[in-house]
Design a protein around this nucleic acid. Structure first.
Length: 495
RNA sequence: GCCCCGGUAGUGUAGUCCGGCCCAGCAUCUAGGGUUUUCGACCCUAUGACCCGGGUUCAAAUCCCGGCCGGGGCACCA
């Protein structure tokens, strides 16, 4: 395998497993965003490294009011995985596996490893969880538990009326580990299985069973799940199953982006965001749209390694990687933001167009032809207001790849042709700037990372650009064509 | 309150398990220079770190103890 970053450490105890089997377990509430990429990339990396198997498991249990399953996520997540270049071998839905969880629930009740608790959740927390004192439900016989279990299934108990608790031990010094709920009642309709089930497993329980049932050997996930891991281990021990190896990584924050799936969802629904590929969602779809090479994402994620420290990184790292990968293939164009139009006179009549290289490092790729649209000896060109404002009257400046002009500021600014030779402006220390001719240039809208639209004009040759083309607007930044036409739409990638 | 985990330059990371090859490597950021008809890319240079205090040792980023700081968990969410 081609190393795509530094070498990560070996997975522990690989030899004790017939095969490395790992899993991706996203909760389908929206598309994968850049924060989820770490989980995907790490698991995918190790599975490829050990030639193992990767299972996509939609963790679509019923969730809660705050965390709801979104049907569209079942398509958007695989899309994101494909973008990332992750290879998964099969797809499993938790919601198809309720019968398995029920079977083990009955068994645990019979074994006396769990009980059906009818206590009020808030009261139980205060009186039992915190104090470490068992409630009376934990004394129930297997038969009593089984009949209570039936009452959970048949609807005798209302929602929150009863729940199955695993006997992890009320005397555990860690309150987080005391008799955690593993199954509970929810009558919320599920997008895939409707109202077929009213008893749903919690994450730690469903995984305690499924990591074994699916033959998972190694689990890499965020350290917010360590308690869940301990509960899983408790279950594995009850059945004497080989414990999958648990590895955790710390929380990842981005200094220059706020990632919130629920906020994104809200903004997408009410139209504040253009859709799930809006740059502000930081979804895989949005990165693809901006022309961020997924190899850059993978590199950045892999470079973080598996440390459990909380880290805060800058998108600049991602942009730096992306430039390295894509600069060589980004054709150059002129784009002028908020143009100031200059009337330039004295241009020699034989000069009707300018030629600029498609890519300065690769002369063999040819040149872009920029027609001047000359009338008499006068042409009308736009330069950036930003440039114009910093120029003094009389400045000698160069329109890049074209000619040098002397500026005369005024109500309607004009310029006088000075010379063709680039050395003239160099010796004068004058600026070299990008420009567009008024005639033939392409109105362009660039969607910035914060969702704002920057408008301006791209040079005429940009009219032939196809969607998906990654380019650089010289002295401005990289982006990806989203839509050709007038105006042309471009998604900004980075400087 | 109880329980876990962690602290290497601005940001990440390597090294820590098995002390010496680490007066700490790499990437990125920042600054400067070279090159370039871009403020991109490329090349060069500079700044910059082992949380603190003890201990063990000929020798500690690495081992031990104490402290400080940071994060997480204690949900009928995932």
């Amino acid at each position: 395998m081609e190393p795509e970053s530094k070498e990560l450490p070996e997975l522990p105890n690989v030899g004790t497993w017939p095969k490395v089997v790992m899993r991706l377990a996203p909760f389908p509430s929206g598309p994968l965003h850049i924060g989820n990429a770490r989980m995907v990339v790490l698991n995918d990396y190790y599975v490829k490294r050990y030639d193992g198997e990767l299972i996509l498991v939609f963790d679509d249990t019923i969730g809660s009011d705050e965390k709801q399953v979104e049907t569209e996520a079942f398509d958007m997540i695989p899309e994101g995985l494909e973008y990332l270049g992750a290879k998964w071998h099969r797809t499993v839905y938790k919601s198809d596996r309720l019968d398995i969880f029920y079977k083990y629930a009955v068994d645990l009740l019979k074994k006396g490893e769990a009980y059906v608790c009818g206590c009020d959740a808030g009261l139980w927390r205060k009186e039992h969880k915190i104090k470490g004192k068992p409630c009376s439900c934990s004394l129930l016989s297997a038969d009593e538990n089984l009949s209570r279990w039936e009452m959970m299934l048949d609807g005798t108990y209302p929602e929150r009326g009863a729940a199955v608790r695993l006997k992890t031990g009320m005397d555990n010094p860690d309150p987080a580990m005391r008799d955690h709920v593993i199954l509970r009642i929810s009558e919320t309709e599920h997008p895939r299985v409707g109202t077929r089930y009213r008893v749903w497993p919690l994450l730690e329980y469903s995984w305690g069973i499924d990591d074994h049932e699916l033959g998972i050997s190694h689990i890499i996930r965020g350290k917010d799940l360590v308690k869940e891991g301990k509960i899983e281990q408790h279950i594995w021990s009850i059945y004497g199953w080989q414990h999958p190896e648990l590895l955790y990584y710390g929380r990842l924050k981005f200094q220059d982006a706020t990632l919130s799936k629920s906020k994104s969802r809200r903004e997408v629904l009410d139209g504040t965001y253009s859709g799930w590929d809006d740059p502000r969602t930081w979804s895989m779809q949005s990165l693809a749209k901006r022309g961020i090479d997924s190899k850059a994402v993978r590199k950045v994620m892999l470079d973080l390694g598996l440390s459990t420290v909380d880290i805060s990184i800058s998108m600049k790292a991602l942009y730096s990687e992306n430039r390295k990968l894509r600069d060589a293939n980004a054709s150059r164009f002129f784009f002028v933001e908020s143009p100031t139009w200059l009337e330039l006179s004295g241009v020699p009549s034989e000069t009707t167009y300018a030629e600029a290289p498609v890519h300065p490092d690769f002369p063999d790729r040819g040149v872009r032809n920029i027609p001047l649209g000359m009338v008499d000896d006068t042409i009308l060109v736009g330069i950036q207001k930003k440039d114009y404002d910093r120029f003094k009257n009389d400045t000698l400046f160069r329109l890049k790849d074209f000619a040098n002009f002397k500026l005369l500021k005024g109500k309607s600014p004009v310029g006088q042709f000075h010379s063709h030779d680039v050395n003239d402006v160099r010796t004068a220390g004058g600026p070299i700037i990008q420009w567009v001719p008024k005639r033939g240039s392409v109105g362009t809208e660039i969607t910035m990372v914060d969702g704002d639209i920057t408008t301006g004009f791209a040079e005429p040759s940009a009219s032939e650009l196809k969607p998906g083309t990654f380019l650089q607007f010289e002295r401005w930044g990289f982006g990806c064509v989203v839509e050709s036409g007038t105006p042309m739409k471009v998604a900004f990638a980075h400087k």
